[in-house]
């Protein structure tokens, strides 16, 4: 839980050794998720967007780092807090905003909504909004890949709250027994809804659980996108080589409420300040500046491009067609 993990040598190597455009691509994804979430929050509070929202401002590096280690035909499972995962896995801003506005052009035709964002063609199962419900599911997807002798990997996102669920134990145990190609990604943001993890875990190190099941677990600085990427690349390679599963505990922090209109009064001020000082986007911008070939103007241009992209998509989504009443009873059975 201490936000100061020792710096990752693998992350430093990625910073030095990666192509500049790849790193700028990661930066753009981070900014895209932040700006998307901020815009959605505005639209929601303004009252034009229906439903409820669970947002991931502050946690962008976990989604971007993990998904950057995956191939397009790999799969992810997500949770009720899935906007970042979706954008990182390659879902389009337009199909997501359309979905949030309940439009028939949304990625789930307006039948999924914020908590069930997904697109199978992009390798993302609709978000599983029952805590830990995606873990046995991901193990089963990985079992299918193993039985079909396909080389794909599943990355299963869940929060620290999921670790207390029976589904975590049952799914992880089977993934371990059968060496399934699943990267178990615990986004440990220190709070299950409003309850801090030290109230619900005797051993607050989630990565320690892996050893009990007989496989490798690792705690990673989840606000360092390159540290996440390096750990995910190693985990994915192990899974593809038949040495899965791997548990990655990514330490991160939620800057915004658990859900709509949550003012986060349960997060102590000094804790918030400490984590805000470790903001994943600002940190990555500082790391990029160290390279010497990325200027503040480069980053500003990316931000401007993202803002423009989102503004244009919002304008389209607000006029997107709503489902007809006949759509109520379709898509129940195949």
């Amino acid at each position: 839980m201490n936000p100061t993990l020792s710096p990752s040598p693998a992350a430093a190597a990625l910073l030095r050794g990666s192509d500049r455009n790849i790193l700028l691509g990661l930066y753009e994804k981070l900014v895209l998720i932040r700006e998307f979430e901020e815009r959605v929050k505005f639209l929601f509070l303004e009252g034009t967007m229906p439903g409820t929202i669970h947002q991931c401002q502050g946690q962008e590096a976990t989604a971007v780092g993990v998904c950057a280690a995956l191939r397009s035909d790999d799969f992810i499972t997500s949770t009720f807090r899935g906007h970042g995962h979706a954008l990182a896995k390659g879902l389009g801003v337009q199909e997501m905003l359309d979905e949030l506005f309940g439009a028939s052009t949304g990625c789930c035709k307006g039948k999924g909504g914020s908590m069930h964002m997904g697109n199978m063609d992009r390798g993302m199962v609709p978000g599983i909004a029952i805590v830990a419900g995606g873990i046995p599911l991901a193990a089963g997807m990985a079992l299918a890949f193993k039985l079909q002798q396909r080389p794909q990997v599943v990355a299963c996102f869940f929060g620290d709250g999921a670790v207390a669920e029976g589904a975590f134990h049952e799914g992880v145990n089977m993934a371990a027994l059968w060496n399934l190609p699943v990267v178990l990604v615990c986004e440990n943001n220190l709070y299950g809804a409003s309850t801090r993890i030290d109230k619900v875990m005797k051993n607050p190190c989630v990565a320690d659980r892996a050893a009990a099941y007989g496989f490798r677990g690792e705690t990673v600085d989840g606000n360092d996108v390159l540290a996440v990427l390096a750990a995910a690349q190693r985990a994915v390679a192990e899974c593809r080589a038949g040495q899965g599963p791997v548990l990655l505990e990514l330490l991160t922090y939620r800057r915004t409420g658990h859900s709509r209109r949550d003012a986060c009064h349960y997060q102590p001020k000094d804790e918030r300040e400490a984590w805000f000082a470790r903001d994943p986007i600002e940190r990555f911008a500082a790391q990029l500046a160290e390279r010497g070939d990325v200027t503040p103007a480069d980053l500003a241009a990316i931000r401007a491009r993202v803002e423009q992209q989102i503004a244009a998509a919002v304008a389209v989504a607000q006029r997107a067609p709503q489902p007809t009443l006949a759509d109520l009873t379709t898509d129940v059975y195949a």
Binding site: C108, G118, P126, V332
Partner: peptide, 8 residues
């Protein structure tokens, strides 16, 4: 199936 808009 339903919440995926008929794709799963």
């Amino acid at each position: 199936r339903y919440m995926s808009g008929g794709t799963v």
